[in-house]
Amino acid sequence: MNPAEKYILDSPEPFRSILVYLKTLIEQEVPNTALLYKWNLPFYYIGKKQPFCYLNHTKGYVDMVFWHGAHLTQYKNHLISDGRKHMKSLRYYTLEEVDEKIVVEILKEAYAVKDKKYYK
């Protein structure tokens, strides 16, 4: 088992269930992903070179953070920046809060904008 999978499976509930579900959605919807362990977090890369998103549980919730989140235009009211200029995240406290339709649509949009650069 790689360290990223270990992070997910060793997470306490309810985080484990949320992380496993998000992992499944990412792997179903985003082609050519590689689950790596970077910065002590499960991090998805496109083709092992291009950062796409990462998963994190902290302070009572799970964050699904999109590397190019500044370029996302759908469901802005669901995306959280927490002072980050470039990255945006979906935040979940319970598995029941995860709306598969929204996650899938944001994953598709994030994949479509993955090659854009962020300039301020």
Rank of each mutant, 00 (worst) to 15 (best):
Y111C: 04
T33P: 09
G47R: 08
W39Q: 13
V113C: 13
E105S: 04
T73N: 13
E100K: 08
E96V: 05
T73E: 13
W39C: 15
P51F: 02
Q50C: 10
E13T: 02
D10F: 09
T94I: 00
L107R: 09
H78W: 04
M64W: 10
R91S: 00
N77L: 06
L9D: 10
V103A: 02
K88I: 02
V98D: 06
Y93T: 13
S17L: 14
Y45T: 10
K120Y: 14
S89D: 09
I26T: 14
E105L: 02
H68T: 07
M64Q: 11
K59I: 01
E100R: 05
L9I: 11
N77Q: 14
L19I: 07
Y93K: 08
L35Y: 05
N2S: 15
L22V: 15
V98P: 04
I102G: 03
N2A: 10
Y45I: 11
L107W: 09
A70H: 07
V20C: 13
K59N: 10
H86M: 08
Y45F: 15
I18M: 12
K101Q: 13
Q74D: 00
Y54R: 03
I102E: 01
P14F: 14
Y119M: 14
V103I: 09
V30R: 06
K88H: 11
V20K: 15
V20S: 12
L72H: 06
C53H: 03
C53Y: 05
K101A: 03
K6W: 05
N56H: 11
I18Y: 13
A70Q: 07
K116P: 04
T94C: 02
